[in-house]
């Protein structure tokens, strides 16, 4: 399919581009070329606005997906640039030199997912969590329910019954 991003393919043959809907495109690229691609998009293609930078934990594949949502304010196009990095000891190049707010995003990702961005300002400083000593909490393997049960105590007097089991207990306790 022809997209306004087709010319990216000539510059970045490794980039995979597909369309979601009018004005929203996806792009996937190996980790090493990501910063080059994002820089190209910003400086050459006019994707001036960094809307969002976030991560998705694909724990089954042992990967983190990093999503950079960029916006071209002139052409009114959004592109989701994605890359996958290994979950073990995750590190990514910083883009704070391109957008000032990226440092904040990266600081949050460092804190919530444990993804390091060497060179990003204050990246090791706690952002939201102060004095956190567990694993980064937005990772899929951090169990919020277990944490809540260990950290807080339940209010006494709460008990519930499953209708199916309760009816069995009441109406046919001995049957299979």
């Amino acid at each position: 399919m022809n997209t306004p991003l087709d010319n990216i393919r000539t510059v970045f043959p490794n980039a995979d581009v597909w369309t979601q809907r009018q004005g929203l495109y996806h792009m996937s690229i190996p980790k090493e070329q990501l910063v080059a691609l994002v820089t190209h998009l910003k400086e050459v293609e006019g994707y001036l606005h960094l809307v969002q930078l976030t991560a998705v934990d694909w724990i089954e594949k042992n990967l983190f997906q990093l999503t950079y949502i960029l916006n071209n304010p002139i052409k009114k196009i959004d592109v989701m640039v994605k890359t996958f990095i290994p979950r073990d000891n995750p590190t990514m190049e910083t883009i704070h030199h391109l957008w000032e707010q990226a440092a904040t995003y990266q600081r949050e990702l460092r804190e919530m997912f444990g993804i390091n961005f060497p060179g990003s300002p204050r990246v090791d400083k706690p952002f939201i969590l102060e004095g956190w000593d567990d694993i980064p909490p937005y990772r899929r393997d951090f169990d919020t329910k277990k944490y809540a049960e260990e950290t807080y105590f339940p209010r006494p007097g709460r008990e519930t019954n499953d209708p199916k089991e309760y009816m069995k207990k009441k109406l046919y306790p001995d049957e299979i």
Binding site: Q52, T54, V56, D57, T67, I69, M80, Q101, T104
Partner: peptide, 27 residues
């Protein structure tokens, strides 16, 4: 803005919220 990822299950995989204050109040 909302960035929503579904893995096809009954539960969201990831929902990320872009609040404008995020950029305004910090950097």
């Amino acid at each position: 803005a909302y960035y929503i990822v579904s893995d096809g299950s009954e539960y969201p995989r990831r929902i990320n919220v872009r609040g404008p204050s995020y950029t305004h109040a910090v950097a």
